[in-house]
Design a protein around this nucleic acid. Structure first.
Length: 943
RNA sequence: GCGGAAGUGGCGUAAUUGGUAGCCGCACCAGACUUAGGAUCUGGCGCCGCGAGGCGUGGGGGUUCGAGUCCCUUCUUCCGCACCA
């Protein structure tokens, strides 16, 4: 029989599904191995050939690990809450639950087509109530917890309340809001229930607080920092503005340091770790309080506001050079500090900066501007009165939104001082500040009071000690990362399991989970601007203990990353209705051994997942500090677009004539994208082109060599470039095994590379050639039981070793070429020995599972047993050579090869080579100066 | 501006430890077979040169008997961050 990939692939896909071949064992004596893919958002467009790249790699790895005797967990599911389904619902009125189900069905069909060894019995969908019940449950645990900095872990809020009850706020070192109160046990006991709840909310790991958020009017929702790119929403590209709103947040900053140090313990790509480090943005320095000078001080006091400005600095040693303070225009003290004379100037400046978009602010990075408030502050180390300015180079969102300006050491401060004629004081003896600031740390301090003459280290230590003594400051670590906003004013997400009573949030009872997402008539905000959930009829909390009472539910839903921040645990025990996963399951599977996915999740999903994992560990719900031991980013598969060149007439109008690629420069043309599916090897199928769109029906062509050659361009794979290649089409034409191997053959997994269907023939031919090893010329099955020859064993054992090495280092592309070499060699040897082919089938099976299952049974083995065969054992004895064709080079240039026995010693090799007349010819009668002999490698003669 | 990754034939790539640069495949060229075909098989295929030979891993320099690989320098592309105090 010929290689009938269609029948074979259907047959085995059905077999695997019917027999649950890849169901992972919950208990096993085998070692565990957890191979995870980042689960997809099921979009309406379905998969293109770029999407499965990582899934193919992980599948090969999972199948390989099964052969190596591991109990492999290799699950798949869907991150099925998200904006696109909701946008579609707004446009069409179709419920997102419905379109999501349809999309999932498409994804499943496409995934099945590729022969993945997923354990589908563990499938999860984040939008399913059985699943989001536990997302809500974890939210509740976070709400019920606070971060104890002393213990460096999260603890339950009850422990905190007990402490307050007994000892008041003394002795608590928490990561919490800035405005927490100090109180004694008695004072706490005297507080009302509501007052206590208000206070506790400031400590909870998920909390409600008025904060500045990224508001996207077009999407009608707030966005997290990682969902905003350059002032626009990542999804849709809509403008984003800053707005103050009451919002749910997650206190991820409590974990900043653990998130940072944990990076050193995991095997992730360095660039990805670096991105997370930058995102966390740790800087070590000091916070310093500058008292405000009269008369503004009295004015502030009258208003009950702080009479000081707190700044953060990484260079506290330069404080004697601080000649003014700069506040962000949004700083809360600005209006109170502005004097009557300066009011106009300041207000004008503020309105100017507000008008500027984020982008403009960045574009004008080198231009400084600002305004004087008219008020002064006192430098705490020398009592100097210095001016307080506002400027937009100071960011409200970083540090305290205020800086001490040291123009001699900081370039922005320097430019600002020059522009507004503010004093610049050199503070280090070797500083050169004639043209620009000099941030040096070398040299000795001058003009710096009690630190004069000290070095950087001494000065910093002395200053911090002095500041702490006088209460004017302290050493401080600052993080760029902010707490993550955790609410979205959208419909298609997890409802927050919270109701409101007297303006305070309370959790539902655990027994009331899941809080089901209610139906609504429309997916838009209400007229009064409330989120879509406000439209749900009769959706009120009716507590069992207070019959007749009705309370409002929280109306925002959870963000897209909620469901994906713990899903790898659900796969361990996907149907548990008592726990998010049983302790036994979690203790067995522990963590993800290999995680494959795109680098676009670097600062979103991967950071939030690490955060939730650390929290779950603090709660003794998870055993490991880090959830993903090894992570690989698969590269993007780019599209390869094809272009045709439309002839432009004298009047500049497009004609219906198209010029072939090579001739396009002889005419006036304009390029036009053409569907890659009607182009082969860059040659346009003219017939199909005419049928492609009605306006091309009568198209004419200027050909070269009788062909129309298209140009090409590498760009994103996208409908608008007509360069989308669908895996269904490829699989139906060449089969899944060919597609799997070709995707791997394209190049290193981590590298981005363009998809070009052209090369796929080579892989297809390879599989046919492999098939033919088992068959005679008439394609009848024909395998011999004879003992294999030395050459055949050598070919086999080369590939056994090569695949082992390649898979372990995720170099799948090199295995594919090695398979080709092995099959070429065996074909040349006319090898049809069962002893060879049977092992080869096992070795190839992770890459091309269908054809291998088929041949495995044809060889007489029990159907379906291939997936759990032991991987063949490499025997180096078969690779031992007794001769080697030494390359002989003269002065580093290879001149010839000489066959020399590998048993010869270096001296004998040298003599043998020099005795060779052909070698002597190259030496040209010159005496050799030196002969380098590396046994088994090379001989180099220096003359 | 800062940080990271990468530059090898017409194309995708290989070279695992400093040891024959271009494996494997596509495309292309020539040939065989043939119901002339988007099938199969054989051979060729880095560049220049008829050849001997020379040149060749983005450019320049260095270390070494020997460099795609190590060092310095420079250019280009991609990715991330970007007034971070």
């Amino acid at each position: 029989m010929d290689y009938q990939f269609k029948d074979i692939e259907q047959k085995w896909q059905k077999f695997w599904a019917d027999h649950q071949t890849f169901k992972a064992e919950d208990k096993s004596t085998k070692p565990k191995y957890y191979v995870l893919d980042m689960f997809p958002y099921p979009s309406g467009a379905g998969l293109h050939v770029g999407h499965p790249l990582g899934y193919i790699a992980s599948d090969i790895f999972a199948r390989y690990k099964r052969l190596k005797g591991f109990n492999v967990l290799h699950p798949m599911g869907y991150d099925s809450f998200g904006l696109p389904a909701e946008q579609y619902a707004i446009q069409t009125g179709q419920p997102p639950a419905l379109t999501t189900d349809t999309n999932i069905a498409t994804y499943r069909r496409q995934l099945d087509l590729l022969g993945f060894s997923f354990d589908w019995s563990r499938e999860v969908r984040t939008s399913s109530p059985d699943y989001y019940k536990w997302t809500q449950w974890i939210f509740m645990q976070l709400f019920n917890s606070w971060y104890d900095k002393a213990a460096n872990k999260a603890r339950t809020i009850n422990e905190l309340a007990e402490h307050f009850e007994k000892n008041g706020s003394a002795g608590i070192n928490a990561d919490c809001d800035d405005d927490v109160l100090s109180f004694t046990a008695g004072e706490w006991q005297a507080l009302s229930f509501e007052q206590r709840q208000t206070e506790l909310l400031k400590y909870r790991l998920t909390y409600l607080r008025e904060s500045t958020v990224n508001w996207c009017p077009a999407l009608g929702t707030v966005l997290a920092n990682d969902e905003v790119k350059d002032g626009f929403s990542e999804r849709g590209g809509f403008p984003v503005e800053q707005k103050k709103m009451m919002q749910w947040s997650m206190r991820i900053t409590a974990y900043a340091d653990r998130l940072l140090t944990g990076l050193d313990t995991i095997d992730w790509p360095e660039p990805l770790k670096e991105m997370q480090r930058n995102w966390i943005g740790k800087s070590v320095g000091a916070s310093v309080k500058f008292q405000i000078a009269e008369p503004a001080k009295a004015a502030l006091a009258a208003k009950g506001m702080d009479e000081l400005i707190e700044v953060f600095t990484t260079r506290v040693d330069t404080i004697f050079g601080a000649t003014f303070l700069v506040l962000a225009p949004e700083h809360e003290l600005v209006s109170a500090l502005t004097t009557a004379e300066q009011k106009k100037t300041v207000e004008k400046y503020i309105s100017q900066t507000q008008k500027k978009s984020e982008l403009e602010r960045m574009a004008e990075a080198k231009v400084v501007s600002g305004a004087f408030t008219g008020s002064y502050a006192i430098n705490p180390v020398n009592g100097e009165k210095i001016e307080i300015w506002i400027a937009d180079y100071v960011l409200a969102g970083y540090g305290t939104g205020a800086v001490m300006a040291v123009p001699s050491g900081d370039q922005r401060d320097y430019l600002f001082a020059k522009q507004y004629k503010l004093p610049i004081i050199p503070i280090i003896d070797i500083q050169k500040i004639d043209e620009q600031a000099d941030p040096t740390k070398d040299g000795r301090y001058i003009n710096s009071g009690f630190i004069n003459g000290m070095t950087y280290k001494e000065a910093t230590a002395t200053l911090i000690a002095r500041l702490e003594e006088t209460g004017a400051g302290k050493a401080k670590v600052n993080y760029r990362m902010r707490d993550a906003i955790f609410g979205r004013q959208r419909y298609w997400g997890e409802p927050v399991p919270v109701y409101f009573k007297d303006g305070l949030p309370y959790l539902l009872a655990e027994s009331e989970l899941p809080l089901i997402l209610p139906e609504v008539d429309k997916y838009l905000p209400t007229e009064s601007g409330e989120p879509p959930l406000a439209r749900a009829k009769d959706w009120k909390y009716k507590p069992a203990l207070e019959p007749g009472e009705l309370y409002d539910y929280e109306l925002s839903t959870m963000p897209g990353w909620a469901g994906s921040s713990w899903y790898w645990y659900r796969y361990m025990d996907a149907h548990n209705d008592r726990k998010f996963a049983s302790k036994e399951a979690i203790d067995y599977w522990k963590d993800v051994d290999l995680y494959i996915g795109g680098s676009e999740h670097a600062t979103g999903h991967l950071l939030y997942s690490r955060f939730w994992n650390k929290f779950l560990r603090d709660m003794d719900l998870a055993p490991e500090e880090e959830p993903f031991k090894k992570l690989i980013n698969q590269g993007m598969i780019q599209g390869r677009s094809n272009l045709v060149y439309r002839l432009i007439d004298e009047l500049g109008r497009g004609t219906n004539t198209f010029v072939s690629f090579g001739l396009r420069n002889k005419y006036h043309t304009s390029p036009l994208h053409v569907d890659v599916n009607i182009v082969e090897n860059d040659v346009l199928d003219i017939k199909k082109f005419k049928a492609w769109r009605p306006e091309f029906e009568n198209a004419e062509f200027i050909l070269e060599n009788g062909k129309y050659v298209c140009g090409f361009e590498i760009e994103k794979m996208s409908k608008r470039y007509y360069n989308v290649v669908n895996p269904d089409d490829i699989a139906s034409r060449y089969g899944a095994d060919t597609l799997r191997m070709y995707e791997m053959f394209l190049g290193p997994l981590e590298q981005s590379k363009p998809w070009n269907t052209n090369g796929i023939e080579g892989v297809f031919k390879f599989l046919r050639k492999f098939w033919k090893l088992f068959h005679d010329e008439k394609l009848n099955f024909n395998v011999s039981a004879d003992a294999p020859s030395k050459a055949e064993l050598k070919a086999l054992h080369k590939i056994i070793r090569k695949v082992e090495e390649d898979v372990e280092r995720f170099s799948f592309n090199t295995s594919v070429s090695s398979f080709m070499i092995a099959v070429n060699e065996l074909t040349d040897l006319k090898c049809n020995k069962k002893a060879i082919l049977q092992d080869l089938v096992v070795v190839l099976s992770p890459y091309a599972p269908h054809i291998c299952e088929e041949l495995w049974t044809v060889l007489g083995n029990e159907a379906g047993t291939l997936s759990y065969q032991p991987y063949p054992v490499f025997n180096p004895a078969y690779l031992v050579e007794d001769e080697y064709a030494y390359p002989i080079s003269v002065n580093g240039k290879t001149r010839m090869n000489l066959n020399i026995s590998l048993s010869l010693e270096e001296e004998d090799i040298k003599a043998f080579v020099l005795a060779n007349p052909a070698v002597q010819k190259y030496l040209d009668n010159k005496p050799e100066r030196k002969v380098i002999v590396v046994r088994g490698r090379i001989v180099n003669i220096v003359v």
